[in-house]
């Protein structure tokens, strides 16, 4: 229990007849980067709002944040978390003012808020625009400032709802590197919702796939992929007009389970990953023009699509 940052047990939330979250349960370890993945309308933002006590669940067993019951200790919990959702900054105020306001709302003194704000502006390369009004910022700059705002109180848990939305690839990469650095340097826990599966796969320790209010899968990205894809496929690219003798292949290699041939590409399913070197040795001996042999390694996106498409 000591090492658990967020624990939710049997939480449901409905808006009228629509179930936004349907009996979800999960727990996230302290210091982990957790990714909540799901299509639009899956309930990701509802989950963030619910875990921050902004909306009340329709049904609940427990929500425990940093070992504290959410409903009984909401003020203490708010003091220790930072949140970024799809909210706007104060456009008519300067970047530094936006951060100072939030620092002081979190109980930091003016001096502490200033120091922290300056540090964050530097970290997000916005120092030279500290006194500029936010309305003059690009979308990417605003997003960086919003993230800085969520970090102003140096929170133990940081909720980031679609943090890379609006950021160019370079800025996204920088932000993700920053998250990796912060989470490894400190014991901060990150709760991130995103559509960008490739990014999530690279930074998350644990992910959950949320679809139509239900958690469909939970675990490390690697485990999730392995849960979904148990088969091992190899793709062989042949020269134009070249074909493999499929019947012979099946006859001679007992570990081959299935073969799909189309144009100059052959997909071969083997019984075990350990059989792949044997297959490569066999293909190397054939008098056939082979351009490449590659193992099909499914990623989180493949697993996500397979899970979400599953009715």
């Amino acid at each position: 229990m000591k090492n658990i940052a967020i624990e939710a047990c049997h939480i449901s939330k409905s808006f009228g007849n629509i179930a936004a979250l349907d009996d979800i349960s999960f727990s996230i370890q302290k210091g982990d980067v957790f990714g909540l993945l799901g299509p639009n309308g899956a309930g990701k933002t509802t989950a963030v709002r619910l875990l921050n006590g902004l909306i009340k669940p329709t049904e609940i067993e427990t929500i425990s944040i940093l070992g504290l019951d959410l409903q009984k200790n909401i003020q203490d919990i708010r003091q220790r978390v930072g949140v970024l959702t799809d909210t706007n900054l104060y456009e008519r105020l300067s970047a530094i003012d936006n951060l100072l306001i939030f620092g002081m709302l979190y109980g930091l003194s003016h001096k502490e808020s200033s120091q922290r704000a300056e540090h964050l502006l530097e970290q997000f390369e916005l120092s030279d625009r500290a006194s500029s009004k936010v309305e003059t910022f690009s979308k990417g700059m605003k997003q960086k400032l919003s993230i800085a705002r969520a970090l102003i109180s140096d929170p133990e848990i940081v909720y980031l709802d679609e943090p890379t939305a609006g950021l160019d690839p370079e800025a996204s990469h920088e932000l993700l590197q920053y998250i990796i650095k912060v989470s490894s340097d400190s014991s901060k826990t990150f709760f991130i919702t995103s559509h960008r599966l490739e990014e999530m796969e690279s930074i998350c320790d644990t992910v959950a796939i949320l679809d139509r209010g239900r958690i469909k899968a939970f675990g490390s990205p690697h485990d999730l992929v392995n849960q979904v894809f148990k088969d091992h496929w190899v793709t062989v690219t042949l020269g134009n007009g070249t074909r493999l003798n499929i019947s012979l292949l099946k006859l001679e290699l007992s570990f081959v389970q299935d073969i799909e041939q189309s144009n100059n590409e052959v997909k071969i399913k083997v019984d075990d990953r350990a059989s792949i070197p044997k297959l490569i040795r066999y293909l190397g001996k054939l008098d056939t023009d082979i351009y490449s042999i590659a193992e099909d390694v499914p990623n989180l996106q493949d697993a996500y699509l397979a899970i979400v498409k599953e009715k």
Binding site: R78, D86, T87, N88, L105
Partner: peptide, 14 residues
């Protein structure tokens, strides 16, 4: 209207 309120509601302000 300007979608700025939610940010404040997450802070410890009563």
């Amino acid at each position: 209207e300007r979608k700025t309120l939610e940010g404040i509601l997450y802070t410890p302000i009563t």
